[in-house]
Simulated assay, not measured.
Amino acid sequence: MPRRLLAVATRLFAEKGFDRTSVQEIVDAAGVTKGAMYHYFDSKDDLLAEIYARVLRLQTTRLEEIAAGPGTVVERVRRAASDVVVTTIANLDDASISFRSLHQLSAAKQREVRAGRRRYHELFRSLVTRGQDEGVFTDRVPADIVVDFYFGSVHHLSTWYHPEGALSPRQIGDHYADLLLTALRTD
């Protein structure tokens, strides 16, 4: 039932917007009662926070595996940079809803979401910093700015990506990774 509620909420939030979707519409479309929804989620805010959190959990798990996995730091940054693009595109409605609507969450929920995102960015940044420390990446630009700039571009995927486009998600991810690695080159 929580998955069904999340799927319905995701669809409705994507179609109508978070603020224009009522709890009643969600439960009607999911074929459950409000009581059943409130058994799993305390509020509509909780649904929105979980939509974001489930993508972030997936991406964090994958980044942890990449960071701890084999290969040079350059290879791992390439895989991580491409992966976040591919997984964002695979969950584009979730990402779009989250970035459009996170400001509508309660302050406490916003802090939770930001803390999870910060942990992800810190792990990604640690890979960039490692490459800078090893001398394979330039340190002309601080790692914090590199990571913020990169993720800013990833967050905008939902504004222009279309599944019917000429490039596959993997190709787009590889192009993004190439751009990042080109910017980090030492020469």
Rank of each mutant, 00 (worst) to 15 (best):
A29P: 04
A29F: 05
D178I: 10
A183K: 05
K109M: 11
K16E: 07
F41R: 00
T88L: 02
Y161Q: 01
L181K: 04
D83G: 10
D46H: 13
L179H: 13
M1C: 08
D148K: 12
A81F: 07
A30S: 10
G165P: 00
Q24T: 12
I172L: 13
A166C: 06
D83V: 06
L63A: 07
G152H: 09
N91Q: 11
E75Y: 01
G131Y: 00
D46N: 09
P142C: 01
I145K: 12
A49E: 14
T186N: 09
V84F: 10
V85H: 05
K34E: 07
V136P: 02
A107P: 08
H103E: 15
L92P: 00
Q132S: 02
L5Y: 03
E122F: 08
L127K: 02
G173E: 11
A9L: 04
I97T: 02
V27P: 04
L184F: 07
L157T: 03
S168E: 13
Y150V: 10
D46Q: 12
L63T: 09
D144E: 14
L179A: 15
R114Y: 13
F124E: 06
T61I: 05
R20Y: 01
D148R: 15
V84Q: 11
L63V: 11
E65Y: 01
N91S: 14
Q59H: 05
L92Y: 00
G165D: 03
T186E: 07
H39D: 04
F13V: 10
P70Y: 03
E25T: 04
S106Q: 03
V147A: 06
R54W: 07
G165R: 00
S168I: 01
R170Y: 10
R4H: 08
V27R: 04
D174V: 11
L127P: 01
S101C: 11
D178C: 06
A166M: 14
Y161L: 02
I89V: 08
A107D: 13
G116M: 11
H121T: 13
A115G: 08
R79P: 04
P169F: 01
V27Y: 02
R78E: 15
R125V: 05
E15Y: 03
Y52E: 11
L48C: 06
W160F: 13
